[in-house]
Design a binder for these strands. Structure first.
Lengths: 206, 206
DNA sequence: AATGTACTTGACCGACGGTCGAAAAGTGTG
DNA sequence: CACACTTTTCGACCGTCGGTCAAGTACATT
């Protein structure tokens, strides 16, 4: 088994570079330099540049995803509280890593790619957990709806897409309006008490 | 004014190449060769390779988008009929162009990019139109909901994401289930008659 | 014929992702 | 320590790519 510390050093280097640069503008040699090793060494640990990015994304959301997964099993907490915690965890992790503060020319392609990788992962990983939470809400009689898995996916897609503002760039007001609409639709469509989901509006705060 | 026929020849070449290849695996020289001209000529008409792709996407959905826009102004047709026509137009255009039948190695990045470009455009362009349709449904008393624009965006996002199966790959059954859930949520959440939106399930047929 | 303009071209450039063989560092054995 | 052997490091090198550009062609206009 190879020295796993080296993996993290490389990932750290890329993450650091990614803070104010785009993937395509970052060369493999640069990552190697930042990591303090030769380019060849990178290819000893990773098969390709893309694999490094994949691993970084994997590592970045490992923790978030894990806490989300734990949440689903904590049946003693009320469903809506857990949902709130789950969304909070999502947005904490999303903004921190993905938002490039200064994107000079950014050829659009790499940003798009980065965000999409994150989106896909988030939705597919969290869907079973949110489904579980919703199911318990249905059993408790707090939610009335016949398609828990579908509901989970719908909510996750909309939330993920809207929280990631670079996919369909909209003003903060418009994002808030969409979220408000989603809340209204959910509350009315699942017979839960109005206002129960209001915590969602807080998560839009930048 | 440059010969606009040349633009289309180049776009045709790329589209043809794109049918069984990925963007990143297609070199600019190849596009030029297929278009029957030198590489330099491409750069006389387009500033970059990405610009060619953008133009192709633009051209591919120009017609669809135009018919969708016309739909919104046809107030004599019932809102739900117009919505159905709009979705039908969406899915016809999406599958035809985006689905690469044989993607041998396809580095994920280019597919992702292509699909996302389409998604972004579809949602942002169609949102105003669908909003208009919904607003008229509200005025008619057929739909009861306070956030027409938000509803339009939510529906478009979910539909677009789910129709494009490569973003979050799921089985046809799962897609159908999600769509059924969306219909149920919409019908219950907007007080429209159950079954009114059933045409949505037809659009999932491959 | 001469001048100007719109268009074409492929050799060329710098940079990139990835390879490779050799060297260095680490490890176990006697 | 010497030795064999494996693991790790490395940067010169390779092929390819997107993009540039000076030279050229085609063709009006004068």
């Amino acid at each position: 088994m190879p020295d796993s510390k080296k993996y993290d050093i490389i990932l750290d280097a890329l993450q650091q570079l990614l803070e104010d640069r785009t993937i395509q503008s970052i060369s493999v040699s640069e990552i190697a330099q930042k990591a303090g090793m030769g380019k060849g060494s990178l290819y000893y640990y990773f098969p390709s540049k893309e694999a490094i990015l994949d691993a970084l994304i994997e590592r970045s959301y490992e923790k978030t995803l894990q806490t989300a997964k734990n949440l689903a099993s904590q049946t003693d907490i009320a469903p809506f509280t857990r949902m709130a915690m789950l969304f909070q965890a999502c947005q904490n992790s999303s903004t921190a890593f993905l938002m490039q503060p200064e994107t000079p020319i950014s050829s659009a392609q790499d940003i798009a790619f980065l965000h999409q990788k994150y989106l896909t992962r988030l939705v597919s990983e969290l869907k079973p957990d949110l489904t579980e939470i919703i199911k318990q809400g249905i059993e408790n009689g707090e939610i009335h709806f016949d398609h828990p898995a579908a509901l989970a996916e719908i909510v996750l897609i909309v939330i993920a897409v809207k929280l990631d503002n670079s996919l369909f760039p909209t003003s903060p007001e418009e994002t808030a309006e969409t979220l408000k609409g989603l809340i209204a639709l959910l509350e009315k469509g699942t017979d839960i008490a109005p206002g129960t989901l209001n915590y969602l509006t807080f998560t839009t705060g930048k």
